[in-house]
Amino acid sequence: MRRAATARREQAAGAPSRRAAGAWWTGHRRAARWGLAQCRENPLASGLAVAVMAVALALPALLAALLAQRDALLADWHVEPTLTLFLAPGINHAAAAGLAGELAADDALAGVDVVSAEQAFAELAGAAGLAGELDAASNPLPHLLVVRPRASAWRGDEGRALARRLGALEGVEDVLLDLAWLDRLAAIVRLGERGVLVLTFVLVAGTVLVTANTIRVLVHQHGTEIDLYKLVGATDAFVRRPFLYSGAIYGLAAGVAAVLVVEGVLLALADPVAAVARAYASDYALAHPGAVFVLSLLGLGMVTGWCGAWLGTSHSLRRLANRGH
């Protein structure tokens, strides 16, 4: 008995909620259709708006895509850093070779070369143009180990930590680590990333405003219709919905166009970049943006279009409200 009553209550509660869900879905389906129709009504205005939005989105997207090439570029440039270990004067060549053997087993290192004091002296003398004039017996140089760390042991501050660790080894007197150029590169990359971020922010804000203005004009064109809808009991949300869809559609179209622009530019750069790479005896090639990049760009376009439409309709809805509708 009680169960039957509960079932009846659930049925009574369930039916309207299903109806409400149906009405919600119907409302959005219609709004999306109207939104698309509105975009089509003014092909020229729509096309121009999409073009402006596409350019504004493509510019930061392009920079981001180029910036994303840096990892592949660095890996391919053989710019692996090296550490030079100056061994203590008391360490003889055999001990140096022994230490090199131990270090070769170290996970953080990709390779170790021994440069003997004699080799170093000969190189120095050769470089100075004094070969034969200097007395090899009075060679003041110690034996050296030239160590190549693995890339994983080189990210961020790992390089310095590695240098400290190697410097603490017995028999190692000093470590020479040329980090200045790495620091400079990292700083430039950070600058680039920040620049792209700022530019993205400014241009996305511009995109929102362009959409807002386009949608405002659309709303104005449909003024009579909107007045009528409000007269027969349309909510603000109902009036606004088709325009939000229009904005999102503009944004999506602009996103697609921006992806095409980025791809086009990368395609145009591919040959010259390959030529440069060949000149440097490298097989480096520009990487194409991945699915995440493409989807983010489309998403960014839709969100900016939607926000712009919200902004563009807010003004008009306030104006209508002030007129007493």
Binding site: A23, R30, E225, D227, L228, Y229
Partner: peptide
Amino acid sequence: RLLAQRSVFDNVAVPLLVCGLAD
């Protein structure tokens, strides 16, 4: 206050669209 470019049917349907009725 009719929408001159729309059909008679569409004009009469406006209050029902606003209420979200099914087609």
